[in-house]
Design a protein around this nucleic acid. Structure first.
Lengths: 334, 334
DNA sequence: CTGAAAGCGCTTACAG
DNA sequence: CTGAAAGCGCTTACAG
């Protein structure tokens, strides 16, 4: 039989109120009484029922996470690292993580949020779908809990944000390509309306402009985050635009670029210089090892969790936007 | 203000019992009364408080998942796909998923299980740590909920299992290498005491024996699931054992193998034939595209969730062990 | 310094 | 066919 607080109180010869206060350190209890309570708890192998606790205190110690991972996309370890980072700090604070997936669809995202509203989560970490960045009305959807946005900054919503400094990462990458003498540098990425991608493009532009090169719109290609799309766009840039270098700001698309270059026997870096996004291990073991922009995904998760937990304690503090630095990892592809 | 069942009852002019029964279809209610209740619910934008519901009904609609992902290992998308598969079927049944990570440490695994015991989860999906396969006493640790083991079969515990047929996948892979005339085929993997790895080794042995080749223990190398370990073991096999082919039954270690072969300029497949584990996209875009054994991770998750949900409804059915087929994807590395 | 008791929002025997 | 009321296991004003 599972012990209840009543059983503990009875065995310790005190009231349930006292047991509760001992457990939660919420008012003074004499050491003598405390000891009796602890002994009884131990003897009964008692641990409080968190559901009853949640009902009464209106606090669940559960955090929701919604990630946008398309279909069967098992190449996307970014959000998996993020989830891991979140979980690691939640654990320390005795919180749990409910994982949910919007599959990059706005309707599913709303659906998940609504499920969470009923579930009495204490807070939500949301990587908004690319569509939801546009939707003003989403704010009304959230329940009465704090929300931290990650990776993508919704244009019409305000709230704490944890982002990666894609501007600087891209700026460094393109600057490095320019330093090697490249002037026609292709840019490949996912949808440009996503804030994270937008920033990467801004970094690209800025680096070019500093060198006195006006960005050529025909060198900037965006498509779906699929390797096939990366393949096609690489083809376009190489056959029509005479580029000598590529900056591929999307890891999945980068695989398509690699596939294309390999098939056409275009040597890296001699005939095509390359910098890609995301430092997954495979990028280091292929031939040649790829120079990449590294995103601190795990740390992003940690930071988001810390901010959310802080916000739960302190609902009215000033809203903040955090940016974690991206890092250019130089290997042999340019 | 958030509406409670009482408010709905009042507005509809019925008892809370009736409202509850309408919501849960748990006893007959006349269509007329039903309509009044639905109207009131709609008007008040009512949705039941799941915490209160859980407390009373002792059912949380939450499933726990514990995965063993080491430290910052962002190459491990296997369990991420599994989690995705689980989540997709839970969603359909209005269940939630709590994600937790044992980091491949037995103590952390126990800790997480204990947290779950308090949390009143309705069931647990567990990918046991390699250590926990050994521990008989773990059974006593579980609370009063069904458990489904995935990917690894604990030697001393009984319960539903969903595994991948690593035997057959490996058998096919090694058979293919043998068909190309290779006889000295190295085997590289993580710890051999893990059931999934054990099976892969058995498939390797079986294929050799069928060809009349007695497996040579010195060609069988196991180490930690790290690319550095794959690198070192590849070095050993090539310099000391004169192998002409390698079967690397671990995706992370396979990266080390690739790195080694590339550094030493050992041509694949001419000077070294290769079959690796796990069909991640990068294995298809490198040069040459790798032949791999594909594991249906997403489907593993789906199956595990289905079985667990079924088990929750039907605690006393016969315990089952499911095996999903692994598939040899033939590309250009042998 | 501690206890008796109300109440969180539901579900579910019990009664008619 | 439906309702009044107990109770799930806690927390927390209120009282002394």
């Amino acid at each position: 039989m599972i012990a209840r607080i009543k059983d503990v109180a009875q065995l310790a010869g005190v009231s349930t109120a006292t047991v509760s206060h001992v457990i939660n350190s919420t008012r003074y209890v004499s050491d003598e009484v405390k000891k009796k309570v602890y002994d009884a708890m131990k003897q009964l192998n008692y641990s409080p029922n968190p559901v009853a606790r949640s009902l009464r205190s209106r606090k669940s110690n559960i955090i929701g996470l919604i990630v946008p991972i398309k279909g069967n996309d098992n190449s996307n370890n970014f959000f998996m690292s993020v989830a891991n980072g979140i979980e690691s700090v939640l654990k320390k604070h005795h919180y749990h993580l409910i994982l949910s997936n919007s599959r990059e669809k706005y309707e599913e995202e709303l659906e998940r949020i609504q499920m969470f509203n009923n579930q009495w989560i204490d807070g939500l970490i949301l990587a908004p779908t690319t569509q939801s960045e546009e939707h003003k009305d989403m704010e009304r959807t959230f329940g009465d809990y704090p929300v931290v946005f990650i990776d993508r900054k919704p244009k019409h919503l305000q709230g704490d944000c944890v982002l990666i400094n894609g501007f600087d990462g891209s700026y460094q990458a393109v600057k490095a390509l320019l330093a090697k003498g490249h002037t026609r540098i292709g840019f490949i990425s996912g949808g440009l309306h996503v804030s994270s991608v937008e920033e990467r493009l801004m970094g690209y532009r800025k680096a070019l402009q500093e060198k006195g090169i006006e960005p050529d719109a025909s060198l900037i290609k965006s498509g779906e985050s699929l390797w096939t799309s990366g393949y096609d766009l690489t083809h376009e840039l190489i056959t029509n635009e005479n580029v000598t270098a590529l900056f591929v700001a999307n890891n999945v698309m980068c695989m398509g670029t690699m596939k294309y270059l390999r098939e056409k026997r275009i040597q890296i870096p001699d005939r095509m210089a390359l910098v890609c996004y995301d430092d997954y291990e495979w990028t280091g073991v292929i031939d040649p090892p790829l120079s990449v922009v590294r995103q601190p995904a795990y740390q992003l998760g940690e930071k988001a969790a810390e901010i959310l937990l802080h916000r739960i304690e302190n609902r009215n503090g000033k809203i903040k936007e955090y940016r974690l630095p991206a890092e250019l990892i130089v290997r042999d592809s340019y």
